[in-house]
């Protein structure tokens, strides 16, 4: 019985360690460069938007949630538009890829 309890405890500790590792890994910043294929923003007063980027490396579409005012403003007045190439850093929060850095790659 004692042995069984010990094994259960070890398994539980291992499980918690795995879970905590997974959650900290998902909070890490992920970097990518990609071209915007779609921007979804609901009107002039929107406080959030979704941009879909085609990852230059994998070719996969990645949906990014954008909440910062500066980038939202750039979506609204079209300083950033579909077709622009973006350097992006994001974190996975509650299953969403939340942007932490969203800049056009090109300057002048």
């Amino acid at each position: 019985m004692k042995k069984l309890v010990s094994v259960m405890i070890v398994l539980a500790v291992f499980g918690i360690a795995c879970l905590s590792f997974t959650s900290s890994a998902s909070a890490d910043e992920i970097k990518m460069v990609g071209v915007i294929t779609k921007i979804d923003i609901a009107g002039k007063d929107a406080k959030t938007a979704t941009a879909t980027l085609k990852d230059n490396k994998s070719g996969n579409p990645i949906e990014i949630t954008v909440n910062d005012d500066l980038t939202l403003d750039k979506f609204k007045d079209h300083r950033i538009v579909e077709g622009d190439e973006i350097r992006c850093k994001y974190e996975v929060i509650d299953g969403k890829n939340v942007s932490k850095y969203f800049r056009k790659t090109a300057g002048c």
Partner: peptide, 17 residues
């Protein structure tokens, strides 16, 4: 500020560089 920075923030080939 936006009017000015639209050009001036990307001078020299990138954002704020």
């Amino acid at each position: 500020v936006k009017n000015c920075m639209t050009c001036h923030e990307t001078a020299g080939g990138g954002y704020l560089i």
